[in-house]
């Protein structure tokens, strides 16, 4: 019994962190973007493309670093489509985001077929391996689950602190101002458009890395349809839940990661419920969470609104 409990705990802790990672990466990026006033609905599409590019690069070169670089580049490129449309051209952010979403789906699928064809066995890679932190990972029971993760997971955790401290720096202040009152920020000498560009592109890069993580660290088998399945949108939902604050959003990511971990665990120990039930649970959970948390939303004033001089 105790052994089972031990198994469960180690698994759950570890899985929570692993599942939370892509959410953290995407959500932290989106926090920056939305604080600056731009909602990026294309996250899902960026994650898809990011996952595909990273995977393909690793598949053909065997080089993980290169895979990540590929992810960064594609993220930046996609960000450089969203940004001009929403910032310089002042077009509707939701529509632009949807456009990127569809583009992500289309291009990913197209390239997948083009490169991997109709293979009956899905391509896979060895992917990233965990890096153990020496002393800490040796702590009994939870040491291994907490301190033995892939580099991207460590990055995600550091990112939480990073974003938190970002908002205390001059640049962070400008990001907040760009989302709260871009006109005032502009009058005070801030280059609002530049700040917004940087925020959006950063968010895109992080989302792309998030997709890359799923492909080369989490799942390692590539499947164009089943891999991302709404994680991008869930990340946006978590930003709303987190009230645009990095710590609170991170909490939401961990909650969700835990939910997914429990989900898989229950399936693994063969709880007698149809698999679709488990599949639906995370989404319903987010909807409920949003219902509760959105009552007194304190969104950045100018979120979603273009800055017209």
């Amino acid at each position: 019994m105790i052994y089972l409990a031990y198994e469960a705990v180690t698994y759950l802790v570890s899985a929570t962190i692993v599942f939370a990672t892509p959410l953290l990466l995407s959500a932290m990026g989106e926090v920056i973007s939305e604080r600056a006033g731009i909602i990026n609905l294309g996250l899902e599409g960026i994650m898809l493309l990011g996952s595909f590019v990273s995977f393909t690069v690793v598949y053909f070169t065997g080089n993980l670093i290169l895979g990540l670089v590929g992810g960064i580049i594609i993220g930046a490129l996609l960000g450089m489509i969203v940004a001009p449309l929403t910032i310089t051209m002042m077009q509707d952010q939701i529509l632009a985001g949807l456009g990127i979403f569809f583009a992500g789906i289309g291009i990913t699928f197209f390239l997948y077929r083009a490169i991997f064809g109709f293979a009956s066995v899905q391509p896979q890679v060895t992917g990233m391996t965990e890096i153990r932190i020496p002393v800490l990972a040796d702590i009994p029971v939870i040491g291994d689950s907490l301190f033995s993760h892939t580099a991207l997971t460590y990055l995600a955790i550091i990112l939480i602190a990073g974003v938190f401290y970002l908002f205390k720096t001059p640049l962070g202040l400008r990001i907040i101002a760009a989302g709260e009152n871009p006109y005032a920020a502009y009058v005070m000498g801030s280059n609002v458009n530049l700040v917004r560009y940087l925020s959006v592109i950063t968010g895109s890069i992080l989302a792309s890395l998030s997709g890359g993580f799923i492909a080369i660290a989490l799942v390692k088998i590539y499947s164009p349809t089943r891999m991302i399945s709404g994680i991008g949108f869930i990340a946006i939902g978590l930003v709303y839940f987190g009230k645009w604050r990095p710590l609170r959003t991170a909490l939401g990511c961990f909650f969700f990661g835990a939910m997914q971990a429990v989900d898989y665990y229950l399936q693994a120990i063969k709880v007698p419920l149809p698999p679709q039930f488990f599949n639906m649970l995370p989404y319903i959970f987010i909807i409920v969470v949003l219902a509760v948390a959105s009552r007194h939303a304190e969104a950045p004033e100018f979120l979603g609104k273009p800055f017209k001089k």
Binding site: G45, I81, L85, M89, Q91, D92, L95, A96, L98, G99, I100, F101, F102, A103, G104, I105, G106, I107, T108, F109, F110, L111, Y112, R113, A114
Partner: peptide, 20 residues
């Protein structure tokens, strides 16, 4: 490939925004 449809979808939205 069937991905063309999504790609066209996407392109249509994006070019519409540019033209607007």
């Amino acid at each position: 490939s069937i991905g063309i449809i999504n790609f066209l979808e996407a392109l249509t939205i994006l070019t519409l925004l540019v033209f607007q």
